[in-house]
Amino acid sequence: MNDHGISLAASDLTSVSTGAGLAVDRRHLAPSPAVAPRHVTTAIQGAEHAIESPTDPVMRVRGLKKSYRRGVHEIPVLGGVDLEIGSGEFLSIVGQSGCGKSTLLHLLGTLDKPDEGEIHFEGHRIDNLDPAGCDVLRNKHFGMIFQFYHLLPELNALQNVLTPLMISNGLISYRRHRRRFRRRAMELLEMVGLSHRLRHKPRELSGGEMQRAAIARALIANPRVLLADEPTGNLDKTTGDEIIRILRRLNREQNLTIVMVTHDAAIADSADRQVCLVEGHVVER
């Protein structure tokens, strides 16, 4: 994979996401009321003028607390996290295993609910959204990648990439847009350098290839924020570096906000900004 190829593909992608892609973004911003309850809709509409001042943080976290119960014992994981994530920022959160990095990321991605504190996304509170609102957020505004890739084993790479669009579209509307969706998925797979593996099932792919497919899947719905949970944790150094290079390119060329959690300081260094999670609190480095 040479750099030129990537940049070509990536610039293609930029044109997609800034031209037609931005229009798609706007469309995503006003999801149909049938999918999202009213307050989500108003939240997103409110987000329209939040976008106008780009210096505003995309996500703001205030006093976030989370603890797990194990039997009668309560184990505090997050003890009041405050964090701001600026638009277009590449932030890495480092910390030891079990310090709550992943928990924080899950809370940001509305996969879990905090005990206390607030999370704001583009100026609107999202930690108390109802399940349907969370589903829309996860589907359209957040992209997630994981340490263990988490591809669906029954589907091939292309279908895995298309999954978020399959989730947001019914059978009829998916069939209507199928061609456009597939073209977009192919572009993304080409961008991550996987265009020769479209029809391969995850078990036929290497770890790096699976992670690249996962990145393509995370990007298919043009998300505002990419949440990466130890994206290189299961890969050797060379492959991991390649993944990081793709993420940096995305951040630089598409101004994509990326929050990456890792325990690897070398990987964390590639981010614009690093925060450290120590005993449930965020410390800037």
Binding site: D135, N139, H150, T163, I167
Partner: peptide, 16 residues
């Protein structure tokens, strides 16, 4: 179970 978690993280609803 894991696939169900993946689908949910991608925004699939419980009804789905």
């Amino acid at each position: 179970t894991r696939d169900i978690g993946i689908l949910k993280s991608l925004g699939a609803s419980s009804h789905g």
